[in-house]
Each structure stands twice: as structure tokens, then as C-alpha cells.
Amino acid sequence: MIGSLGLNLRILRFKLNLPQYKVAESLGITAKELSYYERDLEVTSTVKLIKIANFYCVNVKQLIEEDL
């Protein structure tokens, strides 16, 4: 089943109990940018997607294709 990147990002962040600004800071992006990704309002670049996957210790396929 195809998951939602935004939903998966929110789930992973909530599992770690981290606020958006902390995750964004760690990724080198703004909290606003992360918010757009989490709400599926903006698509991220492949490079940023890999960085996000690495941050959450998952692979890119899990982020975009699976329901976490």
C-alpha cells in the first residue's frame, strides 16, 4: 500500500517525541519547510529525502511507500 510521505514524517517525529523545529534544525531546513513536507504541500528533493530518511534511520522506500 502506498503511504503518505507527510503522514510518515509526522509519525516518525511523534515516535521520537520531537518538535518540528528540532527536526528541521537537525536537517538544516526551516520548520516551515518541514511543515510543508509533513502536510504533503511540497515535495522535497532527492538529496533532502535521503537526509530525512537517514535522520529517522529508515530507507527512502519506507518513507514514501509504506504505512509506518
Rank of each mutant, 00 (worst) to 15 (best):
Y37V: 02
V47N: 13
N17R: 13
K61H: 00
L68G: 11
Q20V: 01
G28Q: 02
L63C: 09
V47W: 11
R39H: 13
Y21S: 12
S45Y: 12
F14D: 08
L41D: 09
A24V: 12
Y21R: 11
E33T: 14
E65Q: 11
S35G: 10
Y56V: 05
R13E: 05
G6D: 08
K15C: 08
S4F: 04
I11F: 10
E38M: 07
I52K: 10
I50R: 15
Q20L: 09
E65F: 00
I64V: 15
K51G: 04
Y56D: 00
A53Q: 03
V47H: 14
F55P: 02
G6Y: 06
V47S: 14
L63F: 05
E65Y: 09
K61M: 11
F14M: 13
L68H: 04
K48A: 04
E38P: 06
L5M: 13
K32V: 14
I11K: 03
I64K: 07
E42N: 15
T44E: 03
D40L: 11
S26A: 15
S35R: 04
P19R: 09
N54S: 13
Q20E: 12
N59L: 03
M1L: 09
Y56M: 04
G28H: 06
L5V: 14
E65K: 03
L7H: 11
L49K: 13
L18A: 00
L18Y: 08
E66F: 07
L7M: 12
N8W: 09
P19K: 11
L34D: 04
L18G: 02
K32Q: 15
R39M: 01
A31D: 11
E38Q: 00
C57I: 01
Y36C: 02
D67V: 15
E33Q: 15
K51N: 13
E65D: 02
Q20N: 07
V43C: 01
A24N: 05
E38S: 00
L5N: 01
E42K: 14
I29Y: 02
I2E: 03
A53T: 01
V60D: 03
K22S: 01
Q62P: 00
L41T: 00
G28P: 06
I29P: 08
E66G: 09
T44F: 14
K15R: 15
G28N: 03
Q20P: 07
I52W: 11
K22Q: 12
S35I: 00
I64P: 07
R10Y: 12
N54P: 04
T46V: 14
N59E: 00
K51I: 06
I64L: 09
K15G: 09
N8R: 14
R39Y: 09
K61W: 01
I29F: 02
F14W: 10
F55A: 03
E33L: 05
K48W: 12
Q62C: 07
T30D: 08
Y37H: 02
R39E: 03
K32M: 13
V43S: 14
V60G: 09
L34P: 00
K61C: 03
Y56C: 02
G3P: 04
L9T: 08
F55N: 11
R13P: 02
F55Q: 10
E42R: 15
K48T: 08
T30R: 02
V43L: 12
K61D: 08
Y37S: 12
T30I: 10
K22G: 10
L41M: 05
L9F: 08
I64C: 10
F55M: 05
D67S: 15
V47T: 05
R10T: 03
E66H: 13
